[in-house]
Design a protein around this nucleic acid. Structure first.
Length: 1010
RNA sequence: GCCCGAGUGGUGGAAUUGGUAUACACGCAAGACUUAAAAUUUUGUGACCGUAAGGUCAUGUGGGUUCGAUUCCCACCUCGGGCACCA
């Protein structure tokens, strides 16, 4: 047997596969399609470390497995080379980014190819290739020339909207956007072109706007929120750690908010990890609430947004964001305008970060302004405060200190009234409550709470029912005096009310259903008071408890109301923010929050609306290295899109591509460019990655063609290709893209779907996230800590197959785990072992000894079980256990004198996706003329998995006491009788009576004795 | 603060629907081969008590349900991730 020389074997087979084009994928096949995709990398130039290929190895194992299972597998790779990282690299090394990208791609690909991936390289894409970005630009124009019709719930051509305007104005139009004023057809038709275009800009899915953005003076560019991280002295850029400040700038935006609902709903149909879905869901931030108008006395309405219209009777003031537009109209009426305007200016000066960091709430009352609560006609003050954000909801809120922590904090600071309107309920909610109100005193001394033990073994606290016409306080004082002998007590605080439901005793049919409202008060007594409690002699014992302890005791005795009150004292927070039952709410008293929300909104003339946290995406960079935005600014100030025939709008060659530092893109310095009036912003890094998975579907980007011209064969073929591949079936990549790429590409895909350019609603059906490989020091691997491990070195020393097996064996695919140079040897030893097994392989004719039938069937059973397990595990991305089961099989095979060739070949097939080179070599050595990569996945035969004998465990009282072998499927009674006679079991049964026997067939017997 | 996820040997980790906890691998120890080393290989390896047979205790902590709990329920602790004045 020759030596396992991984270097020559791997080189040989990589050449052979390339020569025979075994990974070339055709778009026509009788086989079922399967699309396995990796998130494509940006070729950074510093080279790969062993962490980078982990995801690629996982998807490659999966793709090879699917291929062997008989699928037509699309498994491509390409490069995301536009954007900041590529440009930064070029700037640092003083070479043109185009050149840098080409060099880096070459180096990158050389490294990848050593690991033996099964990519169809003919489909390679590069986002910086004009043939590629021509379509990025084309899709952008499609988005630009669209508006979102909320009646049909999809994007539609802007021409259609113009026709509607010409015919009937915008009155009946329900479009996504912020445009509020109305016009009729006549008004529209009389407008000049510039005015029309300005209005349309409010409807387009790609629109120009001005906004405060993250401006990095050093990088000379604007950054997206997810490119900014917290630094020690404020926000800094994620890349480079340069300081970031706020700056108002002209921007392009994509109206992703129009798709918020579809993006949220679509998540339910996806086979993604709950974790990623959760992140996207939070990011979209859907919440259903009501918009309600509060009338300003002698003035206009203020529209507020709230998710809790059921608390409207508890409103004690209104708050507007300092930037709220209504302030201008109110200006003349505001008597303290000086104070108000200085507060507004102050808010403008501080950054949003500072605004969020400052824990103390601030605000100014608007003197002279009075609002009217539409629910009860009450007059309430209006404030401005920076804890209300202008760009969420309506920029104004109704404040309910009793049921919102932020409002409470504000109300406490400025001494504003507190009005409780919701109380908590235990048990069921009765439609028509029958109340028996009680009041409870939580008596404390030195932070200890007094618990009173009644005869019926329950703990209680002093308290009782009201007498006719009594207020809370007088009833409480009376009850305390009656039940205790305390004279020196102080009612310190109101703890809120709760409602408790008591069902009548159905069994004995006694009592009645009733609801009790329990009001809680904190009562403090002085140390001098003696512990005297007396009440008709039914109290047997009193005790002072530590507060936490008291809660536990009360919970056990079902006195939840008291426990809740004590918890409130401990947390020093009397704000009940959950839903409950309405009180102090006029005719809505007794309603549940859920019911009241709808009824009250209707009553006050409000509207149920849905709001989202997600913001429109900024789609512009003031940089050179990005796709040019194909728009022209005319002299009249109108923006016009380029025609399809003018695409691609190529990035011009410039001498200096460094940022100008003024905020303008380097394109603003190109004469030719400016003469044509072309847009100077370029697209952000995520543009190309939002549709690249479609580009792979045709064989080479030069064959890609969206249907621009009718009857174009290229366009027809592209359409067929997209219809065939549909969407990505398995997508593998890092979870850091949860709120970026993965959201944006879903958005673009949905726009394309609205134009029937793609057949599915979602681009990525299943998503798997690989964990990182950390350095041996448990820190992030890379240049920063100098702990990077180069895959080239590992491939050279141990081989690509060992690298592949080890990275899959390390642990669960999704976990981040440290690299270990100690542990990798185990994977190499495993492959060495498999290599040596060749020697034991015999064909039928060659058999030197008579194979022991029983050990042979045993091995066969293990083999078939392993085939099944490896297949199942790969499907579940549980590669680590797949490898481990193959190790068990190899260990077992090693113990055999001889291995049947057919058995060993089946083993090679299941190992092939993990170690393609070595298995291919052995396959050939065994005399096969075909290539192993083209072989079919072996079938696991369930009949052959069964073993004649199985081990069962015998437990006595649930503890394992013995085990023994039985013939498969022995009858229950026979097993139990036999098991009782085992010496290890018998001694435990001696003199005891068996109460119960639990029998799990072929697994376990549990004898229960006493 | 709120919302997710996770805590298992010296280490990475495994365990189907509640049914032998610690598979597989690394490391370590002892033996074989060797002049020697490396490589390979054999055996052992959760903790404690015991010469042994055997027993007791162990899946972050404390309770509960069950014949039986890493798995289900409750409370708490620690770590990781996401969001963070979103009304």
């Amino acid at each position: 047997m020759k030596e396992y020389d991984h270097l020559s074997i791997e080189k040989k087979w990589q050449k052979e596969w390339e020569k025979k084009k075994v990974y070339k994928t055709l778009n026509t096949s009788k086989k079922k399609k399967y699309y396995v995709l990796d998130m494509f990398p940006y070729p950074s130039g510093v080279g790969l470390h062993v962490g980078h290929p982990k995801g690629y190895i996982g998807s490659d194992v999966f793709a090879r497995f699917k291929r062997m299972q008989g699928f037509n597998v699309l498994h491509p790779m390409g490069y995301d080379a536009f954007g900041l990282p590529a440009e930064q690299y070029a700037l640092e090394h003083h070479i043109h980014p185009r050149k840098a990208v080409l060099e880096n791609v070459k180096a990158f690909e050389a490294q990848l190819n050593k690991i033996g991936f099964s990519y169809d390289w003919e489909r390679r894409v590069n986002t910086t290739d004009p043939e590629f970005y021509r379509w990025t630009q084309w899709i952008f124009l499609k988005i630009y020339n669209s508006w979102y019709n909320q009646k049909t719930n999809k994007a539609e051509p802007i021409e259609k909207l113009i026709k509607i305007f010409e015919k009937s104005g915008n009155v009946g139009v329900n479009a996504a956007g912020t445009f509020t004023s109305e016009f009729v057809a006549k008004e529209w038709n009389e407008k000049i072109e510039k005015e029309k275009q300005d209005i349309l800009m409010n409807y387009r899915l790609a629109y120009e706007g001005y906004s405060e953005v993250n401006w990095s003076p050093v990088l000379g560019t604007v950054l997206a929120n997810d490119e900014v991280v917290d630094g020690p002295t404020g926000p800094v850029s994620e890349r480079g750690g340069y300081p970031v400040v706020k700056k108002e700038m002209r921007q392009w935006f994509l109206r992703i908010t129009a798709y918020a609902d579809r993006l949220a709903k679509g998540l339910d149909t996806l086979n993604w990890s709950d974790h990623i879905k959760e992140i996207q869901k939070n990011w979209i931030g859907k919440s259903v609430g009501a918009e309600i108008d509060f009338k300003i006395k002698d003035g206009q309405n203020i529209r507020i947004f709230t998710t809790r219209p059921d608390t409207i009777f508890g409103v004690t003031y209104l708050v507007l964001a300092p930037e709220h537009p209504a302030l201008l109209n109110l200006k003349s009426k505001i008597r303290n305008w000086d104070a108000v305007s200085s507060y507004i200016n102050k808010t403008k000066l501080i950054t949003p970060e500072e605004r969020m960091d400052s824990k103390e709430k601030t605000g100014v009352i608007l003197r002279g302004i009075v609002a009217i609560n539409p629910a009860n006609g009450e007059e309430i003050p209006v404030w401005i405060a920076d804890y209300v954000l202008v760009n969420y909801g309506t920029g104004a809120i109704m404040a309910v200190p009793a049921h919102d922590e932020r409002d409470l904090e504000f109300a406490q600071k400025y001494i504003l009234p507190f009005n409780e309107v919701i109380i908590e309920v235990f048990g069921d909610i009765l439609k028509e409550p029958i109340r028996r109100d009680v009041v409870k005193a939580i008596i404390v001394r030195n932070n200890k709470v007094l618990l009173v033990k009644e005869n019926n073994e329950q703990y209680s606290l002093p308290g009782g029912s009201y007498e006719l016409g009594e207020s809370d306080l007088s009833a409480l004082s009376r009850e305390i005096r009656e039940e205790t002998e305390y004279k020196n007590f102080k009612i310190k605080d109101y703890l809120g009310s709760v409602e408790r439901f008591y069902r009548k005793d159905m069994k004995n049919n006694t009592g009645e259903n009733r609801v009790r409202r329990i009001a809680g008060y904190l009562v403090e007594i002085t140390n001098e008071e003696k512990e005297k409690i007396q009440h008709d002699g039914w109290i047997t014992e009193t005790k002072w408890f530590d507060m936490k302890e008291a809660i536990e005791v009360l919970k056990k005795t079902d006195y939840n109301a008291e426990a809740l009150f004590i918890k409130k004292i401990l947390e020093n927070n009397h704000c009940f923010v959950s839903e409950g039952i309405l009180v102090n709410s006029g005719k809505f008293n007794g309603f549940s929050s859920e019911e009241a929300k709808i009824k009250i909104t209707k009553e006050v003339g409000g509207k149920i609306v849905t709001k989202y946290k997600i913001r429109d995406a900024i789609f512009a960079r003031q940089r050179y290295w990005g796709e040019p935005i194909p728009l022209v600014h005319t002299k009249d100030g109108i923006i016009k899109p380029l025609g399809d025939k003018s695409l691609p709008l190529k990035l011009p060659d410039v001498k200096s591509y460094e940022p100008t530092g003024t905020g303008d893109s380097p394109l603003a310095g190109v004469k030719e460019w400016m003469k044509k009036g072309l847009e100077t912003n370029t697209m952000p890094g995520w543009a190309g990655s939002s549709w690249y998975y479609l580009a792979y579907m045709t064989q080479g980007i030069s064959n890609f063609q969206f249907p621009i011209f009718k009857n174009n064969t290229k366009a027809k073929r592209t359409k067929e290709a997209i219809q065939y591949w549909k969407n990505v079936d398995m997508y593998v990549g890092g979870q850091e893209h949860a709120t970026g790429h993965l959201l944006y590409s879903r958005f673009w895909h949905k726009v394309l779907k609205d134009y029937n350019l793609v057949p599915t609603e979602e681009p990525f059906q299943t998503l798997r996230n690989q964990g990182m490989i950390l350095g041996e020091d448990n820190r992030k691997m890379g240049k920063r800590w100098g702990n990077g491990v180069n895959p080239d070195d590992v491939v050279k020393y141990y081989g690509a197959d060992t690298l592949r097996v080890y990275e899959m064996f390390m642990g669960p695919f999704e976990s981040s785990l440290p690299w270990s140079t100690d542990n990798i040897i185990g994977s190499r030893r495993f492959l060495d072992k498999v290599w040596r097994l060749q020697e034991k392989v015999v064909t039928k004719k060659m058999s030197r000894t008579v194979l022991d039938i029983s050990t042979n069937t045993k091995l066969e059973a293990l083999l078939h079980k392993t085939i099944k397990k490896v297949g199942d595990d790969i499907n579940n991305f549980a590669f680590n256990t797949a490898v481990s089961s193959m190790m068990i099989l190899a260990n077992e095979m090693e113990k055999q004198e001889e291995i049947k060739q057919a058995h060993f070949e089946m083993f090679l097939k299941v190992l092939n996706p993990f170690a393609p080179h070595m298995t291919e070599e052995i396959w050939k050595f065994l005399g096969n003329k075909t290539l192993l990569v083209n072989e079919k996945w072996p079938k696991a035969d369930p009949k052959k998995m069964l073993e004649l004998e199985v081990k069962i465990v015998i437990q006595v009282n649930g503890k394992v006491r013995a085990d023994c072998m039985i013939i498969l499927n022995t009858l229950e009674n026979d097993v139990i009788e036999m098991v009782k006679t085992l010496p290890d079991v018998e001694k435990w049964l001696l003199g005891k009576e068996i109460k119960k026997v639990i029998y799990i067939p072929n697994r376990l017997v549990n004898l229960v004795i006493f």
